Simulated assay, not measured.
Amino acid sequence: MPTNIPISRSIAIDATPAKVFAFVADPRNLPLWAPGAVKSVEPSGDAWIFHNGDDKSRVVVATSETHGTVDLLFGEGPGVYTRVLPNGTGAEYQFTLFFPEGSPQDALDAQSAVVDEELATVRTHCENQ
């Protein structure tokens, strides 16, 4: 039985799946589209160090261009799972993260709004570059 609450969102993007994948698969782009979560990144062996103010996290970025997946894996906790899909002449970018069971609804709503803003930023960047 699942014990986490998913937040899943997707957005249509008027850019090729390859272009969207290239943008979201590069961890160095995270500060551009998810600045509230990641202020800067640096490589660390087979992983990345994500900095957010005084906090830092070691994150494995697992990608598959063939499957369009870009997963951010944070040690023991649940990760962030994303996928780029073909959608007509463009792409659909899907994004899922998990909150612990029992998380307050206002926290879930606030995070959903942040994810919506981040996805809009991905769309703007991919459509205008």
Rank of each mutant, 00 (worst) to 15 (best):
C126L: 03
N29R: 13
I11L: 10
A18C: 01
Y93Q: 05
F95K: 07
N29A: 07
D71R: 03
Q111F: 12
D55A: 15
G88N: 11
N87T: 10
R9Y: 02
P17C: 07
A47Q: 11
G36W: 02
E42L: 10
Q111M: 14
M1R: 09
S64C: 08
M1I: 08
T121E: 12
Q105R: 07
Y93A: 05
S112D: 08
P100D: 14
D106V: 11
E65W: 00
I11S: 06
G88S: 03
A120K: 09
L72Q: 13
I49T: 13
P6W: 04
H67E: 13
K39E: 11
E101L: 12
P104Y: 15
L32M: 08
L32P: 01
D46N: 07
G75Y: 00
F99E: 12
R83S: 00
E42W: 14
P17K: 02
F50M: 02
D14R: 09
G75I: 03
T124D: 10
K39P: 00
E42D: 09
D71V: 05
P35L: 05
P35G: 07
H67M: 12
I5N: 06
V80L: 11
F50D: 01
L73M: 10
Y93M: 04
S103C: 09
I7S: 08
V122K: 03
T96G: 04
A110C: 03
L30E: 12
P6C: 08
D109K: 15
G77A: 15
T121P: 03
V122H: 06
A37N: 12
A47Y: 04
R123C: 03
E76M: 10
F74N: 03
V84S: 02
F23W: 02
L108G: 00
D46T: 01
F23H: 05
D116I: 02
H125Y: 13
P35F: 08
T69Q: 12
G90V: 04
A15D: 01
